[in-house]
């Protein structure tokens, strides 16, 4: 899995930057072709992530209660919710870092384990870049052993991915401590997608970014879903960004799914939780 993505994006051995881009573009066209040939109705049946009656409490304080959510393959789902509503907790159940007190979380029909993690890419809310490594080492951390790359090859690949998240090549040789919050976020996203995961989990990918970079990230996530068939689980506070990324919007409130629907319906629904959320957001913006 990992090997194939790198080979797709890059050259088979030594590669240079323009060559990597060329190969990447070619692959895009090919994938678009495959998508149109597959039958959409059969795709809808495959569930990638399932929350089945999940409850989770921390020292007696309930965070998730009897939460149910099924996410089909190749869907881009966006989770909205007030701060502290348990969005990140949901994400950590998918990676297996947290286990439900009751109920089940299934990824590809299985409980999350080490082997499954190979097909999951995660962008953590705080970025979680490795302090002791340069940016390019961060990005290629899970690839170097697998690909057998030397440092130059790995660095080239990292620069290519940096370009995808709207960062300049000179960022590659910086350490995370020398990056701004928004830059770190984008580096973390580049790292999350470096293996071409089947499932991409993003915890607030555009928080702290300027509008232009935010748009670039949204476009990238959308492209990963459309052209690389990723299943994407995104947490955000940014409604505009949610509209751009999402196939499906979900509002988390009081530990359960309060609203679940198409992004276009979010603004017009009379669901009381959505109304309360919309009002809270609009007040915050005043």
């Amino acid at each position: 899995m990992k090997a194939s993505f790198a080979q797709v994006l890059c050259m088979d051995g030594a590669f240079a930057l323009p060559a990597a881009r060329l190969r990447y573009n070619r692959r895009q066209n090919a994938s678009v072709g495959t998508i149109s040939m597959t039958d959409p109705s059969s795709q809808a049946e495959e569930l990638e992530i399932q929350f089945i009656n999940v409850s989770k409490a921390f020292s007696g304080r309930s965070v998730l209660s009897h939460l149910n959510l099924a996410i089909p393959k190749r869907q881009s789902i966006v989770i909205l919710g007030r701060s502290g509503s348990g969005k990140s907790v949901m994400l950590k159940h998918i990676t297996g870092a947290l286990r439900p007190d009751r109920g089940q979380v299934l990824v590809k029909g299985r409980k999350p384990d080490r082997a499954l993690m190979e097909s999951i890419g995660v962008l953590f809310q705080q970025g979680a870049l490795f302090d002791s490594m340069k940016v390019w080492e961060n990005i290629t951390f899970s690839l170097r052993d697998v690909e057998g790359w030397n440092a130059r090859q790995a660095r080239d690949f990292a620069i290519y991915l940096l370009e995808q998240v709207d960062l300049a090549a000179d960022v590659a040789d910086k350490f995370p401590r020398d990056l701004s919050g928004g830059m770190a976020k984008r580096v973390a996203l580049a790292r999350a997608v470096s293996t071409r995961p089947e499932i991409l989990l993003c915890d607030e990918p555009t928080t702290g970014l300027d509008p232009v970079s935010g748009l670039v990230i949204d476009t990238l996530i959308r492209r990963l879903v459309d052209q690389f068939n990723m299943t994407c689980f995104t947490i955000t506070h940014d409604l505009a960004s949610a509209q751009r990324i999402a196939d499906r919007l979900v509002l988390l409130a009081d530990g359960r799914i309060a609203w679940d629907g198409r992004p276009s319906d979010f603004a017009s629904t009379d669901n009381p939780d959505v109304a309360a959320y919309r009002q809270a957001v609009s007040q915050a913006h005043v």
């Binding site: 870049l129 490795f130 302090d131």
Partner: peptide, 19 residues
């Protein structure tokens, strides 16, 4: 060092990236 990595999710991130 490891404690800092733990509280800033770096260990979790590493767990997600390598065996």
């Amino acid at each position: 060092e490891l404690g800092t990595m733990r509280v800033s999710d770096q260990i979790e991130a590493m767990q997600a990236m390598i065996k």
